[in-house]
Design a protein around this nucleic acid. Structure first.
Ligand code: MN
Ligand code: MN
Ligand code: ZN
Ligand code: ZN
Lengths: 132, 132
DNA sequence: TAGTAGTTTATAATGATTCTAAATAAGTGT
DNA sequence: ACACTTATTTAGAATCATTATAAACTACTA
């Protein structure tokens, strides 16, 4: 299994639940956006055994803390995550409630001129809301 | 009362609850960011009578729909609102969990090069996360 | 003043997320 | 392999922001 080392190196034991979740999240051509509920559904579809919802939450948060997932700031009752951990931005289609990646190259360079005393910039994220 | 006309013109009846909430939200020198719970506290402090939480939710959503308030997309368990309805951006201090306005002039002009078929850009919002 | 449509309110319901604590599994040393 | 420790999983309960309900109340209009 190609995720065993990745997990061990992160100090996470490679359990069969985590490995299954890795398969669903990372063994794909393209990156994608998801909510916990969508992920739960994907897992059910893929494997026949079920992983408890608590474990899915635990794992997603563990992966996020390790930097393998990002949370996307968006106004929704559910939290959105992203398997694309590169610096990039998003369109948010308000009608479809769907996120679309916006590569850095699709947005001009962003220069934050103001500084806040004693604080460092950790990330700069652009959200472009779309309507019809 | 200076908010009566504003409300009437929006098709909202100027009830005493709405007028009180207008006072708290709009009768200030500076704009500010708030959650429903923070707003509830402000209202309690200001007036001695209480407005039901349901009414606060209703009113905030009504004002948002009319464009007198904006929701700020951010990862938090509570929804943040902004009385500053001009186009602008935000710092988010991760440690303090506080929002700080970033004026348009503090961010270079943002040029979204990619187009999505049949969709119009409604807003472009930048969130700059700050750490120590 | 009467009628009506809009609003407020207490309270219940919802639903995403987190917590709990017991069972299970993984890592470690022998 | 075995014993031991520690991490993880799990079902279910708890939390808590938000929304729904439906009855009482209020603003507008004629
Ligand atoms: Mn979360
Ligand atoms: Mn809301
Ligand atoms: Zn993305
Ligand atoms: Zn603001």
């Amino acid at each position: 299994m190609k995720y065993i080392e990745k997990l061990r190196n992160s100090g996470l034991r490679p359990t069969k639940q985590r490995l299954q979740i890795c398969e669903v999240l990372f063994n794909t051509e393209k990156t994608f956006h998801f909510t916990i509920n969508e992920l739960e559904k994907k897992i059910k579809d893929r494997a026949n055994n079920k992983i408890s919802l608590a474990t899915i939450y635990n794992t997603v948060h563990a992966f996020e803390k390790k930097g393998y997932l990002k949370q996307i700031p968006i106004n929704s009752n559910q939290t959105y995550f992203d398997t694309n951990i590169t610096d990039h931005h998003h369109f948010y289609d308000l009608k479809e409630e769907k996120l679309i990646d916006l590569e850095n190259s699709d947005v001009g360079p962003i220069n934050i001129k103001r500084k806040i005393n004693g604080k460092k910039i950790k990330s700069v994220e652009v959200l472009v809301k779309l309507e019809d």
